[in-house]
C-alpha cells in the first residue's frame, strides 16, 4: 500500500503551514518527515490521516484518491505524540475499541476480538498488562499500547507523530530499534514525524526534510548526507564540510 501526496497546501488563519508538498511513499517503506518545530511536518501527517483537510492538492492511498474521504474511511493507523489513550479504559479495552465500535454486521465476535487483542498485546510485548489502566504504565509501554490500538483496525498505512518524543533517552533508543524490527516483520507502509535527525537516519528508509512548510529534499539517509540540496539541509543536518 503506497501513499502519494500531490501539491498539498494548508493555511491556518492566514499562515501557510504546508505549501505545495508532494511525496511518494512506496509500499512497505518506512519514511521519516524531518524538520524543526513549526516546519509543517505534523500538519502534513494530519492531512494524510484525514484529521485536517487541504486547501488544495490531493492525497492517494495506493492509487485511490482519498482527499475527500474522512479519517476513518481512509483507514490509516495513527499514533499520537502523547498517545491519546482512553484514560478510563484498560489496556485491553483501549486496543479493542476500534473493533467494538464497528457496526454489528462487521463487528467480530467477542471471542475473536479477545483473540486479536491478545495477539496484538503479544506483538507489542505487553501480554501481562491487559488489565492495567494507561495511568499505570510507563511512557514506553503507553507508546506500544497506542501502536497496538492503531494496528487493531488493520490499517492500510501507519502514521506516527513524534513516536519517541515524550520518552527519555534510554527508552527512546530501545524503542527505536524495536520499531525498525517491527517494521521489517510487518512491512506496513509507515510514515513518522520527528525533529531528531539521528532518529530519522537510524530508523527510516527515506527521509523527507521540511522547513517553513516547504519540502527541502527527499532521499535515503546516505544521499542526504552526501548531497544536501541546499544550505538549509546542510545546516540542519549539521554537515561540517562545504558543498
Amino acid at each position: 500500500m503506497s501513499i502519494r501526496v500531490e501539491a498539498l497546501s494548508k493555511k491556518f488563519a492566514g499562515h501557510a503551514a504546508v505549501q505545495d508538498a508532494s511525496i511518494e511513499v512506496g509500499t512497505g517503506k518506512l519514511v521519516a518527515l524531518l524538520g524543526p518545530s513549526g516546519s509543517g511536518k505534523t500538519t502534513l501527517l494530519r492531512l494524510i490521516a484525514g484529521l485536517e483537510f487541504p486547501d488544495s492538492g490531493r492525497v492517494f492511498f495506493h492509487g485511490e484518491e482519498v482527499t475527500h474521504k474522512n479519517a476513518y474511511e481512509r483507514r490509516a493507523g495513527f499514533v499520537f505524540q502523547h498517545y491519546a489513550l482512553f484514560q478510563h479504559l484498560s489496556v485491553f479495552d483501549n486496543i479493542a475499541f476500534g473493533l467494538e465500535v464497528r457496526p454489528r454486521a462487521t463487528r467480530p465476535h467477542r471471542n475473536e476480538i479477545r483473540e486479536r487483542v491478545h495477539c496484538l498485546l503479544q506483538l507489542v510485548q505487553l501480554e501481562a498488562f491487559a488489565k492495567r489502566f494507561p495511568s499505570q504504565l510507563s511512557g514506553g509501554q503507553r507508546q506500544r499500547v497506542a501502536l497496538a490500538r492503531a494496528l487493531a483496525i488493520e490499517p492500510r498505512v501507519l502514521l506516527l507523530d513524534e513516536p519517541f518524543g515524550a520518552l527519555d533517552a534510554k527508552v527512546r533508543k530501545e524503542l527505536r530499534a524495536w520499531l525498525r524490527r517491527f517494521h521489517d516483520e510487518t512491512h506496513i507502509t509507515s510514515l513518522f514525524v520527528t525533529h531528531d535527525q539521528e532518529e530519522a537516519f537510524e530508523v527510516a528508509d527515506e527521509v523527507v526534510i521540511l522547513n517553513h512548510g516547504h519540502i527541502q529534499q527527499i532521499g535515503a539517509p546516505g544521499l542526504l548526507q552526501r548531497e544536501p540540496a541546499n544550505a538549509f539541509v546542510h545546516d540542519f543536518l549539521g554537515l561540517d564540510f562545504q558543498i
Partner: peptide
C-alpha cells in the same frame, strides 16, 4: 484532549459512539 476524540474517530467510532464511549465517561 482533542486528540483522544480524533483517536476514537480514526478507529472508526461514529460521533455518537465517541460521545458515548469516550467523552461521556470522562
Amino acid at each position: 484532549s482533542e486528540e483522544v476524540e480524533e483517536a476514537a474517530a480514526l478507529l472508526g467510532a461514529t460521533r455518537l459512539q465517541t460521545f458515548r464511549r469516550v467523552i461521556f465517561p470522562a
